[in-house]
Design a protein around this nucleic acid. Sequence first.
DNA 1: CTATGCCTTCGAGCGCGCTCGAACGCAAAA
DNA 2: TTTTGCGTTCGAGCGCGCTCGAAGGCATAG
Lengths: 182, 182
Amino acid sequence: MATDDLMTRALEALGDDGPLSVEAIRRLADLADLPETMTIAEVADLLDISPHTLRYYERAGLIEVARDGIGHRVYDAGAVRRLVFLTRMRLSGMPMRDLRHYISLVDAGGHTVPERLDVLVEHRDTIRRRIRELTLSLTAVEYKIATYGGATGPDVQALGTTTGTGHTALPDEPPRRALPAE
Amino acid sequence: MATDDLMTRALEALGDDGPLSVEAIRRLADLADLPETMTIAEVADLLDISPHTLRYYERAGLIEVARDGIGHRVYDAGAVRRLVFLTRMRLSGMPMRDLRHYISLVDAGGHTVPERLDVLVEHRDTIRRRIRELTLSLTAVEYKIATYGGATGPDVQALGTTTGTGHTALPDEPPRRALPAE
DNA sequence: CTATGCCTTCGAGCGCGCTCGAACGCAAAA
DNA sequence: TTTTGCGTTCGAGCGCGCTCGAAGGCATAG
C-alpha cells in the first residue's frame, strides 16, 4: 500500500517523461532487491558515480566500508542504502558539509532525531526555493524562445519588429528603440 | 496585455510565496523604468551581486562597459539589460562557458539567431530536467520527513517500529531487521 | 589640507567536489 | 610465468565561479 502510493506520487512528481526519470524510477525500484554485498564497481555502476567518488566519500567521513580478506571494499546493503541516500542528497544540492553534519548526527544515536529532522526540513525548503527559482527562469527562457531571437545585442533590426509591442515585463532584452549603444 | 499575461504566468510559476519570489518579482517589474545610466554599485545592488563579480563578468568577456572621463564604469540601459539576462541565466545554472558562447553569437550578428535559439532550447531542456530531478528529490525528502526519523544508522530501535511496514519503495534507509552492521 | 569613500587594475587565492596519476597488490586467464 | 584486470593508498591537480587584497586615483566633506 505504502509502496504503490509512493511510487505513484514519485511518478506524478516526475511529470512528463524523459531518460532521467526512467533511470530514477529504476533506482527507486531497485532498492527492493539489493544483493547481500557489492563491490565498489557494482556500487559505482548502480549509483552512476565513479569508484573514485565512492572512495572520496569514504575519505570525507560520510560512510565506513568494510574490507574483505584481500583489502577490497565490501559494501553491504546498509552501506548501499546510505550511499543511495547520500547520492540523492548530493544530487538535490546538499553540500558535503551538511551531509557530514547529518551523518554525524545519525552516528551519534537516536536522540539526535529532532535535529536530523531540522536538517531535512531545511533542505526540503532549500529544494523548494530552488525549484521556484528554476521555474521562474524556465518561464523567462520559454518566453524568450517564444518571442524569437533573443535580442541581447544589436541584431534587432535583422529580425524585423515582430516582437515590437509592449512587453517590458520580462527583462531579457526587449526590442530597443533604434540602435542601442552596445 | 502581454505584460499582464506574462506577469501572471511568472507569478503562477512562483506558486507559494517567500522572500525570494518577492525579490524576483521586483526585478521583473523594475526593468520597466531603468535609469539612463548606472554606476557599478547601483547595478550590483540591482542585481544583488558584488561589484567584484560585475568586473569579473567584464573580464570574462560577457559584456563591455563604457567608462566616464574619470575611468569609472558607466552602465547604460542596454548593458544593464544584458546583465539581467546573464544573471538570470547564471542563476538557472548555465555555465559561464555557454554564456560566453551565446554572447559571442549575439555579437556576431543577426544571422546567428537560429544558433542562439538552439542554445536557449537546450538550456530550457536542462532547466526542465533539473526541475524534474529536484522534484523527485523533494518527494523523497518529504517522504523521509513524513515517516519520521530518517534511519541512516543504528537508531531505529530508539524510535520504536512505527514505520515498520513495507516501504521498500523509497530507498532512504527503511527500518532494518534488528541491528544492522554499520 | 587631510580624510573618507568609492572607484580603478592586476593577480592571487579559495571553497567545492571531484578527478586523476603513481605505485603497488592479488588473482584468474593465456 | 607473464599478462590482464580490478582493486588498494596517497597526494596532487583541476575546473568553476567567484572573492579578495594591494596599490593607487579622484572628489567631496569636514
